[in-house]
């Protein structure tokens, strides 16, 4: 047998070694293991840690509250400016300004 033939035969044997591989034996306790893993994570809806979820929820609530406070403050300030400006504009006509004429 030439070297080339030998090489071809070897390659064919190696390539064929993956064919008709027997599937590994199943684990009779696999379902119990899966159930345990799911319970450990807090049920099927689990996506990430409980602590992490609570942390994110608190952070979101805090962020919303801070946003709310900031918006309320801004509205309050703008209302005050608008009132002052309108008052100053009509004050001379209304003669409601106090003139200190000593």
């Amino acid at each position: 047998m030439t070297q080339e033939q030998d090489r071809e035969q070897w390659i064919e044997e190696v390539m064929a070694s993956a064919k008709r591989i027997e599937r590994p034996m199943g684990n009779p306790f696999l379902y119990e293991k899966i159930k345990y893993r799911m319970q450990e994570r807090g049920g099927p809806a689990y996506t990430f840690g409980k602590t992490k979820a609570i942390g994110w929820a608190l952070a979101a609530v805090l962020l919303l509250a801070l946003n709310g406070i900031s918006i309320m403050n801004k509205i309050g300030r703008e209302k005050h400016i608008l009132h002052t400006e309108a008052y100053n504009a009509i004050a001379p006509e209304m003669q409601t300004q106090t003139i200190y004429n000593y």
Binding site: I21, R23, P24, M25, G26, N27, P28, L30, Y31, I34
Partner: peptide, 10 residues
């Protein structure tokens, strides 16, 4: 799980 585990594992 019992029927499909070998397929998945393989």
């Amino acid at each position: 799980v019992d029927k499909q585990q070998q397929r998945v594992l393989n």
